[in-house]
Design a protein around this nucleic acid. Structure first.
Lengths: 242, 242
DNA sequence: CAAGTTAAGAGTCTTAGGGACACTTAAAGT
DNA sequence: ACTTTAAGTGTCCCTAAGACTCTTAACTTG
């Protein structure tokens, strides 16, 4: 076999001569709504796990997807109308038994977007829904999607401890209190607002828009911020307490 | 199709009716030797990239491998004779173009082991070699294995900043200076020995064997340590400076 | 309109732990 | 015995997080 030239080898190569395995890309899409963390679930229209709720995602389209990220974004855009502003790979899970059809590997991503960035009307279709993450974790989901949500949530928690990545679950402009509340929801723990604001000043990856929030509420009107480019990569030297 | 029962669907399911893609598992195996970080490379015996050096790894064996970790360990044990004491998934890379045979995904792991734990005689075979990581990165390797080594190294650097994971590249017993030197090599930066020792005491994941090193050298004879179980999971709250 | 209430945001003290560097200790070499 | 070298300790400084208080600017209510 290794006597062949590479050209001849490739010309005669046919993937169907080999035992291949299934490869899928699934994403855990988070957003924040009313101070709660939500996750997007999709009702399966096919076997296996027909009619079960599961993660948005699916097989790689060897024609259309140029790489794994593109595949994740394609499936997410199909459901939400947009490519989410933050996408990060969590891990891959593969085993002989996780899919009844055979050896199957899935690459899990998690994504963040603002609820209002969703351009499709999710309430009007019955096979896609936003569900509080805690609630999703109590359902019986397709495949091992529950563990995948747990892993994504764990990663997001770590990120909340040493970065400002969660900001991508907020709209274009937001207040520091909104961001702090989001971190608190993710971590399941309250944060000293002074510490939080000091960290934001230190990180220098957010900027004031100059406007104040127009939302009328009781106290002082909070300043609005937006993210600078590169905010996703900032890492604090010290973690918040956990 | 969704009218079918699940049983009927699975009975008639044949993976070869679909456009599948290639799935491989590759590992970057690091060890330390003479104060330098080494990586295990394997010379390819098959097309494509015949005779190029690349990472140990390969296709999933749908019969023998129960999951991705087992697949990584199997390929590593074939070359080194042992399952490495530390194995961690780095990321997955997949695209239409990374393999000339078609759409291909690879799950990259990195592993750590002591050089002396290697039970095969690597010097006596000519298709496997330990190479300093810096040197490996200057070679033209198979596929995108160079980027994979870079990603693994980057992950290992992060781990060296906030954990004691690199300890798994040392033998069963080791001195704190050896561990510190290893961290310094990985980070490319010297560390204050006082800080390093304080962190080790704080972490409480190493224990003294009670013995002193028998290696005869000039100065005071250093104490020997071993890792406690669970050392891999310890995370410091503060990073070392980078 | 003045007083009260609420949330945003600043001031300041404490505290944990890393950086820097001098010092001590125990081995080998001369 | 004296020097050299590496292991290991003592101690001061400094950064940044935690805790708590105080101020500011909006609203609500009598």
């Amino acid at each position: 076999m290794s006597q062949q030239t590479e050209q001849a080898y490739l010309a005669s190569y046919n993937i169907k001569d080999y035992d291949t395995c299934l490869t899928t890309v699934d994403s855990v899409l988070f957003t924040v709504l009313n101070g709660e963390l939500y996750t997007l679930l999709v009702r399966r229209a096919n076997h296996p796990y027909l009619a079960y709720w599961g993660l948005p995602g699916g097989f790689i389209d060897v024609q259309r997807d140029v790489d794994l990220t593109a595949c994740a974004n394609r499936h997410l855009a199909e459901k939400t109308g947009i490519i989410p502003p933050y996408l990060e790979q969590v891990c891959s899970t593969g085993s002989k038994t996780r899919d009844p059809r055979g050896w199957s590997t899935t690459v899990t991503y998690y994504a963040l977007m603002a609820h209002i960035q969703c351009t499709t009307d999710i309430d009007s279709v019955d096979d896609v829904q936003w569900l509080p993450a805690t609630q999703a974790l109590q359902m019986e989901l397709a495949f091992d999607h529950k563990q995948m949500i747990e892993q994504a949530l764990e990663r997001l928690k770590q990120k909340a401890l040493y970065s400002l990545v969660p900001v991508y679950a907020l709209p274009e402009t937001f207040t520091l209190s909104e961001l702090q509340q989001l971190h608190e929801v993710i971590l399941g723990k309250s944060i000293q607002s002074k510490s939080f604001r000091r960290r934001i000043e230190l990180a220098n990856v957010l900027e004031e828009t100059g406007e104040l929030s127009t939302q009328k509420g009781k106290g002082k009107r909070p300043a609005l911020y937006r993210v600078k480019t590169g905010a996703a990569d900032y890492r604090f030297m010290r973690n918040l307490e956990h």
